[in-house]
């Protein structure tokens, strides 16, 4: 290599050049992170369709749930979704700082920059933790008491779990809409010129799903 001819030690040709290349590992992991993310986004939209059907009628929701039950999609799909979520978390967590030092750095950075997309990443990291814990509890609770019915869901909300969903719902919706936007910009499906538009779509998406979610929660709260 040419730079070896560089003389003296005056130029700090850094050791990072000699790091063993990780082969294709990082590429596969990045694909997986994106695909699991996209899959979970799709699932969340379907999930929202299922539960929000209660707004029209609890019977529709029960029918859809039964369909999943009979076809064993719930019994198999449930754990698969849980597993996907864990994988997605582990993959994405590679980039999230877990040491206080890193957290301090990124927090100071976000505060310094006054930059929306940087803040959105902090939001994503924080909501990720909430979703991981609360989402897992939710899945466990639901799957350990199949079949899913509107009545059971309503009972949960009315028995004091309301606050639980009031936290989980916005966390998930934030994480999903920001994540959806970020997949778009990271992989270049959204171009520089379209970013403001994409941002708007992201916001509208968040608002719409929040609205549906809140209406659904309200419906459960008063379903009797």
């Amino acid at each position: 290599m040419h730079w070896l001819r560089n003389f003296g030690g005056s130029m700090s040709v850094d050791a990072t050049m000699h790091v063993v290349r990780p082969g294709r590992r990082d590429a596969y992991l990045d694909w997986l992170q994106m695909l699991t993310g996209a899959g979970l986004v799709l699932f969340m939209w379907c999930h929202m369709l299922l539960v929000s059907s209660v707004v029209i009628s609890p019977r529709i929701m029960d029918a859809i749930a039964e369909f999943f039950e009979v076809t064993y999609m719930a019994q198999v799909g449930g754990p698969v979704i849980f597993f996907t979520m864990i994988i997605h978390f582990i993959l994405a967590a590679r980039k999230i700082p877990f040491r206080a030092e890193g957290q301090k750095t990124i927090w100071a950075h976000a505060k310094m920059m006054h930059h929306a997309d940087t803040w959105l990443w902090v939001v994503q990291a924080v909501t990720a933790m909430i979703v991981l814990i609360m989402g897992s509890i939710h899945i466990f609770v639901v799957l350990s008491d199949l079949p899913i019915t509107a009545a059971k869901s309503a009972a949960r909300v009315q028995e004091g779990w309301g606050w639980f969903y009031l936290i989980l719902l916005p966390s998930i919706e934030l994480h999903v809409s920001v994540g959806f936007y970020r997949i778009g910009v990271k992989w270049g499906f959204i171009k520089t010129a379209d970013r403001p538009k994409a941002k708007k779509v992201e916001n509208i998406m968040f608002a719409v799903f929040m609205a549906i979610g809140l209406v659904t929660l309200l419906r459960f709260a008063f379903l009797g």
Binding site: H2, L4, R5, N6, F7, S10, M11
Partner: peptide, 8 residues
Amino acid sequence: AELGINVL
């Protein structure tokens, strides 16, 4: 850079 010239 290609030729390894020390540009300081």
